[in-house]
Every structure is written in structure tokens, then in C-alpha cells.
């Protein structure tokens, strides 16, 4: 394994560089995945059948909380990668840990929100609109859940093995993923919630 010391640790081997490129391509596929969901959402948005519309069920408070939490977590994962670049493992683990906690808090709020929808009769089966709403939000939520487990595994590896080129690579890729989920959330916030409440 040849290390290229002119590059940051996560880019230092051939395989690392390939991994990062490969993950960017994967994110391209993810963009298509969410683009399909958003397109479907716009199609079903007004097809509410006998069920409620977006304006009837959206609540600003949990949505704002989710948004603030997720944006903050995107900031802290950025700090974690910055700490990794200046080789401060301790700070990195702390920021990564905070990111994961914020992710868990986001998820808890989202579960509360889903529970609320369920109780006011907006379930997966209610109408085309509620179905696509919950599928879109659920796909994003499932990504966050997967990210929590993934991040936790990386955290354990950093604590056990320290910052090797491989682990730096995984952490960096994880940060790309996390930022991507944040971008998707911004679209969800703007084009699902704000548009629906207006």
C-alpha cells in the first residue's frame, strides 16, 4: 500500500481515492432516487381522495426542530472532518459522537411526527398523497437510521484503531453521506412542508 503524503489522509491511497469517487457516483444515484420521489410527490400532492391535505396535517414546530437539529449535525460532522484533517482524533470522536446524537434526536422527532400523523388519520393507506408523503419522508428517515448505525461503527473503529488511512477514508465518505441527507432535507423542508403549508 503506497501512501501519498502530499494528500490528506482520506485521499492517501489509490483505493481511498477510488472509494471517494465511487461514493460520489453513488450519491448521483441517490439524487435520482430522491428526484423520483419528489416528482411522484408533486404528482400526488393534490390527489388527496377523502383524506387530509398537507395544509391540514403539517405542524411547523416539529418540522422546525428537525430542520435545526439536522442542519446543526451537518455542521458538527464538518467540524469532525476538520478535526480529522488536523489530526486531532479526540476532537473528531467528540464531534462525530455529537453528530450521531443529533441524528438520533432528529429521528426521535420524526417518529413523534409520524405518530401524530397516524393519530389524526393520515396513514400510508389513507390516500395517494399521504402514501407518497410518508414514503418520501420515510426513505429519508431510513437513510438517517442507516447512517446512525454506519457512523456508530466508524466511531468504534476510530476509538479502537485510531486514524488509519482506511478509517479516515470511511469517515470522510460518511460525512459526504451525511451532508447529502441534509441537502435532501432542505428540499423536503422547502418543497414539501413550506409549499404544503402556504
Amino acid at each position: 500500500m503506497k501512501l501519498d503524503h502530499s494528500q490528506p489522509l482520506e485521499y492517501s491511497t489509490d483505493q481511498n481515492r477510488l472509494n471517494i469517487l465511487g461514493f460520489w457516483i453513488f450519491l448521483g444515484a441517490e439524487i435520482m432516487l430522491f428526484a423520483t420521489l419528489f416528482t411522484s410527490y408533486f404528482v400526488y400532492e393534490d390527489r388527496i381522495g377523502s383524506g387530509p391535505s398537507g395544509a391540514d396535517i403539517f405542524e411547523i414546530t416539529p418540522v422546525l426542530i428537525e430542520t435545526i437539529i439536522l442542519l446543526t449535525s451537518s455542521f458538527t460532522i464538518g467540524l469532525a472532518i476538520h478535526a480529522m484533517r488536523i489530526n486531532r482524533t479526540k476532537a473528531m470522536t467528540v464531534f462525530l459522537g455529537i453528530t450521531l446524537l443529533l441524528g438520533a434526536a432528529f429521528l426521535a422527532t420524526e417518529i413523534y411526527e409520524f405518530n401524530h400523523y397516524y393519530h389524526i388519520g393520515a396513514t400510508l393507506q389513507t390516500s395517494g398523497f399521504t402514501g407518497i408523503l410518508l414514503t418520501t419522508l420515510g426513505t429519508h428517515g431510513a437513510h438517517v437510521t442507516l447512517g446512525l448505525f454506519w457512523g456508530a461503527m466508524i466511531l468504534i473503529q476510530i476509538m479502537k484503531r485510531g486514524l488509519t488511512p482506511q478509517i479516515a477514508n470511511k469517515s470522510f465518505i460518511f460525512s459526504l453521506y451525511w451532508h447529502f441527507l441534509d441537502v435532501v432535507w432542505i428540499f423536503i423542508f422547502s418543497f414539501i412542508y413550506l409549499k404544503g403549508m402556504m
Binding site: 400526488y44 381522495g49 383524506g51 400510508l124 393507506q125 390516500s127 395517494g128 402514501g131 407518497i132
Partner: peptide
């Protein structure tokens, strides 16, 4: 799971 994406009831749309 009984959703209504491609049905003809409750806002479903088979052309989708």
C-alpha cells in the same frame, strides 16, 4: 401494505 399509488381510489393514479 394497501397504499393507493397505482389504484383508482383515494387519489391513486395507475398511469404513474
Amino acid at each position: 401494505f394497501g397504499t393507493h399509488f397505482f389504484t383508482s381510489m383515494n387519489g391513486g393514479m395507475d398511469m404513474m
